[in-house]
Amino acid sequence: HYVEVNGKKIQATSAEEAEKIAKKFAKIYNATVLDLGNYYKVT
Rank of each mutant, 00 (worst) to 15 (best):
residue 18 A to G: 01
residue 29 Y to D: 05
residue 25 F to R: 00
residue 16 E to S: 12
residue 24 K to V: 12
residue 13 T to K: 14
residue 11 Q to V: 13
residue 14 S to P: 00
residue 11 Q to E: 11
residue 9 K to R: 13
residue 33 V to E: 01
residue 42 V to S: 02
residue 11 Q to D: 09
residue 13 T to M: 11
residue 9 K to G: 02
residue 28 I to N: 07
residue 40 Y to W: 14
residue 8 K to Y: 14
residue 37 G to L: 05
residue 7 G to D: 05
residue 12 A to W: 02
residue 1 H to F: 15
residue 27 K to V: 12
residue 12 A to D: 01
residue 23 K to W: 14
residue 27 K to H: 12
residue 26 A to K: 06
residue 27 K to N: 11
residue 31 A to G: 15
residue 39 Y to V: 07
residue 16 E to T: 09
residue 42 V to K: 02
residue 33 V to T: 03
residue 18 A to F: 02
residue 11 Q to N: 12
residue 13 T to Y: 10
residue 34 L to S: 07
residue 29 Y to L: 12
residue 30 N to A: 08
residue 26 A to M: 06
residue 13 T to F: 11
residue 36 L to I: 04
residue 8 K to L: 13
residue 33 V to W: 08
residue 9 K to F: 13
residue 17 E to V: 08
residue 12 A to Q: 02
residue 32 T to K: 09
residue 5 V to S: 00
residue 33 V to H: 02
residue 17 E to N: 08
residue 20 K to V: 09
residue 16 E to N: 08
residue 35 D to C: 11
residue 23 K to M: 12
residue 26 A to W: 05
residue 39 Y to I: 09
residue 3 V to N: 00
residue 11 Q to A: 13
residue 36 L to Q: 07
residue 8 K to N: 08
residue 13 T to R: 13
residue 16 E to Q: 11
residue 13 T to W: 10
residue 2 Y to G: 02
residue 18 A to I: 03
residue 29 Y to G: 05
residue 34 L to G: 04
residue 20 K to F: 10
residue 1 H to V: 10
residue 15 A to N: 09
residue 24 K to C: 15
residue 17 E to L: 07
residue 12 A to S: 06
residue 29 Y to W: 10
residue 21 I to L: 12
residue 9 K to S: 05
residue 5 V to G: 00
residue 15 A to E: 05
residue 36 L to A: 05
residue 27 K to C: 14
residue 30 N to V: 04
residue 5 V to Q: 01
residue 24 K to Y: 15
residue 28 I to K: 13
residue 42 V to T: 01
residue 21 I to C: 08
residue 37 G to I: 05
residue 34 L to W: 08
residue 22 A to G: 01
residue 32 T to D: 09
residue 37 G to K: 05
residue 34 L to D: 06
residue 43 T to L: 13
residue 41 K to N: 04
residue 28 I to E: 11
residue 6 N to H: 10
residue 29 Y to T: 05
residue 22 A to F: 03
residue 34 L to I: 14
residue 37 G to V: 07
residue 29 Y to V: 05
residue 31 A to Y: 07
residue 3 V to I: 08
residue 26 A to D: 03
residue 28 I to W: 14
residue 10 I to R: 01
residue 25 F to S: 02
residue 2 Y to F: 09
residue 8 K to A: 09
residue 14 S to E: 01
residue 39 Y to Q: 02
residue 10 I to F: 10
residue 36 L to W: 04
residue 2 Y to D: 00
residue 17 E to H: 13
residue 38 N to T: 14
residue 1 H to R: 06
residue 27 K to R: 09
residue 39 Y to K: 03
residue 7 G to V: 01
residue 11 Q to F: 15
residue 5 V to M: 06
residue 19 E to H: 14
residue 27 K to M: 14
residue 34 L to E: 12
residue 32 T to V: 13
residue 42 V to E: 03
residue 21 I to Y: 05
residue 16 E to P: 06
residue 14 S to I: 05
residue 25 F to W: 13
residue 31 A to D: 02
residue 2 Y to T: 05
residue 6 N to T: 03
residue 28 I to V: 09
residue 9 K to Q: 09
residue 1 H to I: 12
residue 2 Y to E: 01
residue 42 V to C: 07
residue 42 V to R: 00
residue 17 E to Y: 05
residue 38 N to M: 10
residue 3 V to D: 00
residue 41 K to H: 06
residue 3 V to M: 02
residue 20 K to N: 09
residue 35 D to K: 15
residue 39 Y to L: 05
residue 1 H to A: 08
residue 20 K to S: 11
residue 24 K to M: 15
residue 41 K to G: 03
residue 24 K to E: 14
residue 40 Y to Q: 02
residue 16 E to V: 11
residue 30 N to F: 07
residue 12 A to T: 12
residue 31 A to W: 09
residue 43 T to A: 09
residue 41 K to V: 15
residue 8 K to E: 11
residue 12 A to V: 10
residue 7 G to M: 03
residue 2 Y to H: 04
residue 17 E to D: 10
residue 41 K to L: 14
residue 15 A to H: 15
residue 14 S to D: 08
residue 1 H to K: 13
residue 16 E to R: 12
residue 40 Y to P: 03
residue 13 T to P: 09
residue 18 A to T: 00
residue 16 E to M: 11
residue 5 V to D: 00
residue 39 Y to N: 06
residue 30 N to P: 01
residue 35 D to E: 09
residue 8 K to H: 14
residue 36 L to V: 06
residue 35 D to V: 14
residue 38 N to Q: 08
residue 28 I to F: 13
residue 41 K to C: 11
residue 31 A to K: 03
residue 4 E to N: 04
residue 36 L to K: 08
residue 37 G to C: 09
residue 38 N to E: 11
residue 40 Y to M: 05
residue 8 K to T: 11
residue 22 A to T: 02
residue 21 I to P: 00
residue 21 I to V: 06
residue 15 A to M: 15
residue 36 L to P: 00
residue 30 N to R: 08
residue 18 A to R: 00
residue 6 N to C: 15
residue 15 A to R: 15
residue 15 A to I: 13
residue 21 I to Q: 03
residue 12 A to R: 01
residue 19 E to V: 08
residue 5 V to I: 14
residue 5 V to C: 10
residue 31 A to M: 14
residue 1 H to Q: 05
residue 34 L to A: 07
residue 23 K to T: 09
residue 6 N to S: 06
residue 39 Y to P: 00
residue 25 F to L: 14
residue 43 T to I: 15
residue 3 V to T: 02
residue 42 V to D: 03
residue 13 T to Q: 13
residue 5 V to A: 04
residue 11 Q to R: 11
residue 24 K to D: 12
residue 41 K to I: 15
residue 28 I to L: 15
residue 3 V to R: 00
residue 37 G to F: 06
residue 1 H to T: 08
residue 16 E to L: 12
residue 23 K to Q: 13
residue 3 V to H: 01
residue 29 Y to K: 06
residue 1 H to Y: 15
residue 19 E to S: 10
residue 2 Y to A: 03
residue 35 D to G: 04
residue 30 N to S: 08
residue 8 K to G: 06
residue 3 V to W: 02
residue 10 I to N: 00
residue 6 N to K: 08
residue 43 T to D: 10
residue 4 E to Y: 08
residue 16 E to F: 10
residue 37 G to E: 06
residue 4 E to F: 08
residue 5 V to F: 13
residue 40 Y to E: 02
residue 36 L to C: 15
residue 38 N to K: 09
residue 18 A to H: 00
residue 33 V to M: 06
residue 33 V to R: 00
residue 21 I to E: 02
residue 24 K to I: 15
residue 39 Y to S: 07
residue 25 F to T: 02
residue 32 T to R: 07
residue 1 H to E: 02
residue 10 I to L: 08
residue 35 D to Q: 15
residue 22 A to I: 03
residue 18 A to D: 00
residue 37 G to P: 02
residue 9 K to A: 06
residue 27 K to T: 12
residue 42 V to H: 03
residue 15 A to W: 12
residue 11 Q to T: 12
residue 41 K to A: 08
